[in-house]
Simulated scan of single mutants.
Amino acid sequence: MKNILNIKSTLIALFAVITFTACESVSSYEDESPSIAFVAVANADFSVLEAAAVRGGVAGVLSNSNPNDPSGAYTVFAPTNTAFARLGLNEETLGVLQKPFLTNTLLYHVSNGNLRSSNITAGGMSASALGPQRRFIQRGSDLYINGSKILATDVNASNGTVHVIDKVMIATGADIVQSAIALQSANVFINPELSFLVEAVVYAGLAEALTASPGSPKFTVFAPTDQAFKDLGAALGLTFNQPSDIRQLPANVVGQVLLNHVFVGEKFTSELNAGNVSPLGGDPLTLGAFTEGTLTVRGVGNNTPANMVIPDVQTTNGIVHVIDRVLLPNL
C-alpha cells in the first residue's frame, strides 16, 4: 500500500512540473499557483518527463494532495528534456529502460513536504520518496542536488513546489557490486551492460572489497562500459567478444587495471575538479575541466581521456560514474 501511495505521489508532482519551463525566470512564477487538477500536459520542455511518468506506470488522477505529509505537499526536482538527452533518452527511447527501474528513478526525484529554496542549504540532505537521501552541494554560485544543477527554484503549485534540474538523478539502493550486477542482469537497461566489468571484478577477486559492509569505506568508481572493454581488447590485439574473454589476461593485471578505477571517498561530479586523484592502483588519474556537469578522466597509460556516459549514480557505498574507456595504469 505504501508503494502505491508513493507512486500516486510521484504522478501528481511530476505532472505539476509540466506546465512550467526551465527557460523562464523564477520571478515569472511568483504570482502563479495553479491547481494540479487543472494542469495541462502541454509544455515541450518536459515532454520526456511526461512520457516517463506514463511509461513508469504512474499515470492517474492529478487532483489529490499528498496523503503521506501533513502539508499535503510534494517537492519535485524535475529534469528537463535536455537532462534526459544526456543519457540518450527521449520519448521514443525510454523503452530501453526496464519499467521498475524507470519508476524508481522517478521516485528518486520526489519527496514529501514543501521544500522551498530558502530551506535548502549546501551540505544539507533531503530524503527521496524512493528512500535514499539526496545531498545539496554548492559549487561557485551554483547549487546542485547530487551532481545535478538546480536551474530554477520555487515553481509554485497548489500542492507543492517544483525545482528544475539539468541532469537525471539515479540511485540504485544497492552497493557498488550489486549495482553493477543489476546492469549486467538487464534489470536497468533492457540489454545487459557492465558485463565485462562484473566478470573482471570477480576474476580479479575484488568483489568483496567493493561490497558494502559495516565500517567499510565509501568509494568513487569509474565504471567502463562493455564497449570500452571490447575496445581495450582490440588495442591489445585480442578479441573480447564476451565477458569471459577478459580471462585471456593474467588475473593480477586485471586487478591492477581495476584498482586504477577506484578511489576512496564518494564524490559527485559537482564535487570534482580538474587535476589529479589517487586511485587504489597507485598511478594518478587526471581529471579534465568541469564542463556542463561532467569531467573527462585519463589514466597514465591512456592517450585519450574517457568521457562520462552516465555520471553520478548513487549506491549505498559510493558513487559510480560510467565511462567509455578503460583507464590504464603503467603496466
Rank of each mutant, 00 (worst) to 15 (best):
74 Y>K: 04
326 V>N: 01
98 Q>G: 07
208 E>P: 04
296 T>F: 11
323 I>G: 02
274 A>T: 14
167 K>S: 15
242 Q>S: 15
221 V>R: 05
35 S>M: 05
231 D>V: 01
23 C>N: 11
313 V>M: 07
263 F>G: 09
250 P>G: 14
179 S>N: 11
91 E>H: 04
187 N>F: 08
105 T>V: 15
135 R>W: 12
59 A>H: 00
270 S>G: 06
203 Y>Q: 08
309 V>D: 03
155 V>S: 03
148 S>C: 05
157 A>S: 12
96 V>Y: 04
169 M>R: 09
204 A>K: 06
1 M>H: 11
311 P>Q: 00
234 A>C: 05
29 Y>F: 11
133 Q>H: 05
90 N>M: 03
56 G>W: 03
146 N>M: 02
76 V>H: 03
260 N>H: 12
90 N>S: 13
107 L>G: 02
261 H>T: 02
105 T>S: 12
321 H>N: 15
33 S>L: 05
281 G>I: 01
285 L>V: 03
255 G>F: 08
198 V>M: 02
201 V>G: 01
252 N>H: 12
308 M>R: 02
272 L>V: 01
273 N>Q: 13
236 L>K: 13
225 T>C: 01
63 S>M: 04
19 T>Y: 06
224 P>V: 09
205 G>F: 07
298 R>P: 04
272 L>H: 10
29 Y>C: 05
28 S>Y: 08
273 N>C: 05
71 S>A: 07
299 G>M: 08
166 D>K: 04
269 T>P: 04
215 G>R: 06
224 P>Q: 13
248 Q>N: 15
171 A>P: 11
234 A>R: 15
106 L>V: 02
206 L>D: 12
95 G>H: 08
167 K>L: 09
273 N>G: 07
257 V>E: 06
86 R>I: 05
302 N>E: 14
6 N>W: 00
217 P>F: 02
213 S>G: 07
154 D>T: 03
147 G>C: 05
78 A>W: 07
94 L>D: 04
310 I>E: 02
115 L>K: 11
311 P>D: 04
86 R>T: 10
241 N>T: 00
102 L>A: 08
257 V>Y: 06
236 L>N: 07
309 V>E: 08
239 T>P: 08
302 N>F: 00
61 V>T: 00
308 M>D: 08
228 A>Q: 09
280 L>N: 01
312 D>L: 06
207 A>K: 11
17 V>K: 03
144 Y>L: 00
180 A>Y: 03
36 I>A: 11
229 F>A: 10
52 A>W: 00
92 E>T: 14
188 V>K: 03
249 L>E: 07
270 S>F: 10
94 L>F: 08
129 A>M: 05
54 V>D: 12
163 H>R: 02
288 G>P: 00
1 M>L: 10
26 V>S: 11
331 L>Q: 14
140 G>H: 03
306 A>E: 08
